[in-house]
Design a protein around this nucleic acid. Structure first.
Lengths: 198, 198
DNA sequence: CAGATGACAGATTTCAATATCTGTCATCTG
DNA sequence: CAGATGACAGATATTGAAATCTGTCATCTG
């Protein structure tokens, strides 16, 4: 079980994910993580100041996986801004929906973690909204989108994010399984896109 | 404590609200309610089959108070549909925000109750969406709003409701206290209204 | 001497015994 | 006899003692 590799933050994070997957959020302890790595729990504390910090790091990693994929869509230049926006929102919804649907057990674990790590979640949201700002700005520059006072690209992007809340906030994950959800998602996206258009 | 009045469902509901206010959702028992009324708990069970049914009735009453006020706004004929829609959404937000802000303790209690009574909540949501359908239909009839295929008044109303989720779903109540929230609400309402306009 | 260890104090969780509650119903009472 | 009662069985919650965990740090080791 204990490898000879050096103990890195990365290896600890991987082991923590595994322990979370196995034991769930309530019973995953730092001692378990240390045991999984074949080291003493004191060694884990050399890399992460507290259990909370360790869990936050795991949560951040998990969220960043989604963020990275979306960034490519936001920055791709082969789509018009309205297309890119619809594409991006659809990709966000799909990504979240898969995370929730493919392994509900693990998703439930991360839901608990998300509830604990409000700062990490806020950063993640800020990150996503920034990507929206990028698309909205491009759309305004190219004349696809208009903003009426007192809207700015930032406030508009935030409004788009807020308006699609039900389709990316994990607390609605249960509703994402229901049949009509695709249509409801499309209706909101259409409404938003029409609202943005010049 | 025990009055001579007859024991009615209404009196039981009032007593239950009081017990919930005093003890909170976790510790409010049927025995407590009976005690508050000066009767045996068997008598309470004559009016409500189960504790769950009693709690659902209390929840429904609480939700219906909001619904009733909004219905007047939806059906008033002294406003154009866009005005009525903005008015209605604002009133919904304000009502919920006050419920949450004025007595956070009690609101937390009702949040628990809402989580328990999914059927009641669904009915309440259906009720609100119906009111939106009324406004949207009027707007389409009068030419203020357009719907492009495959939208219907129903799907559009639902989209409006979904898009404003963050401003009426109680799970976001904490965010309603933050400073920029009014502006964010207005940005979403503006976006939605622009999306609906012909 | 950088990095790992494990003993330790205080905080938190677990577990099993005990108490309370839910829902029913035979019995009572005005 | 309509409506209230309270004893009761099974389910759920509370409690407090024991076990485990978190975070620190003096000590050890390659």
């Amino acid at each position: 079980m204990a490898t000879t590799e050096t103990l890195t933050a990365e290896r600890i994070l991987e082991a923590t994910e595994e322990v979370l997957r196995r034991h769930g959020p309530a019973k995953a302890t730092v001692v378990d993580v240390a045991r999984a790595l074949g080291v003493s729990h004191g060694s884990v504390y050399r890399h992460f100041r507290t259990k909370v910090a360790l869990r936050e790091a795991v949560t951040k990693r998990w969220l960043d996986r989604t963020t990275r994929t979306l960034k490519e869509i936001a920055q791709a230049s082969d789509e018009t801004p309205p297309q890119a926006l619809a594409h991006w929102l659809g990709a966000l919804f799909t990504a979240k929906r898969h995370k929730a649907g493919d392994d509900p057990q693990l998703f439930a674990t991360y839901e608990v973690l998300l509830g604990e790590s409000s700062a990490v979640v806020e950063e993640h949201i800020a990150d996503l909204v920034d990507q929206l700002v990028f698309i909205v700005k491009k759309g305004m520059r190219e004349g696809d989108f208009t903003a009426v006072e007192p809207s700015t690209a930032a406030s508009t992007a935030r409004a788009v994010f807020d308006a699609t809340n039900r389709f990316h906030d994990p607390s609605y994950a249960r509703e994402w399984e229901q049949p009509g959800i695709e249509a409801e998602f499309n209706a909101v996206v259409d409404l938003v896109l029409r609202g943005l258009r010049a």
